[in-house]
Amino acid sequence: NGDSPPTVSMAELDHLVQIISKSHLETCQYLREELQQMSWQNFLQDEVERYQSKPREVMWQLCAVKITEAIQYVVEFAKRIDGFMDLCQNDQIVLLKAGSLEVVFVRMCRVFDSQNNTVYFDGKFAGPDVFKALGCDDLITSVFDFAKSMCSLHLTEDELALFSAFVLLSADRSWLQEKLQVEKLQQKIQLALQHVLQKNQREDGVLNKLRCKVSALRSLCSRHTEKLSAFRAIYPDIVRTHFPPLYKELFG
């Protein structure tokens, strides 16, 4: 009935960890070494002001493009997760439509500098003030706070990979046709995540902290949708003609 966790051998869990970690590293957009080479360069004040003085719609379009690029990597990640492509096409679409932006937010902690409260964006590290022209200060603050709290967990790449897969394979999304199959896959991923956390000798509370992040992610994504609706109400033509088609498909 889907309530009892599936029986999985240690070897199977190790294999799942290996596959998902590999998928994550192959599709994570930026390798840690590449980020280190960027030497955590921050935008200068005049560059910040240039972003701030962009028209609202231009900044929205720029962010939509960056989000869409990141989402394309998440789609590739999903495709390489064991069992994802075995789900029916409807459910693959449902899971990505609901979860791809959530995974982008999870992945953000890899490109986030907690000490300076900056994130890698458009070639350098940007603080929340860079995004002022969007007119969504509250959402931006929440996104930065989320990245900071994810960073404070100091997840390894393996742990981050499995948590991303866990988020993506959420069995409680609306409109799933084969909910039970998604549920089984998510339970296996959760067991693999627990397995890795134990192996890495993480304290017991980490899994609970990660579970709390799931609801924070949902809140961030629904607020993004609200902000987009408000923006679209004022600039319908900009969204229609200038926003990336994939972004419109996912959030329209």
Binding site: V75, K79, M85, Q89, I93, V94, P245, L246, E249, L250
Partner: peptide, 17 residues
């Protein structure tokens, strides 16, 4: 759903590189 998400569907169909 597939009809409304043609690009996503296409990305899913493309073989992984």
């Amino acid at each position: 759903l597939k009809e409304k998400h043609k690009i996503l569907h296409q990305l899913l169909q493309n073989s992984t590189s």
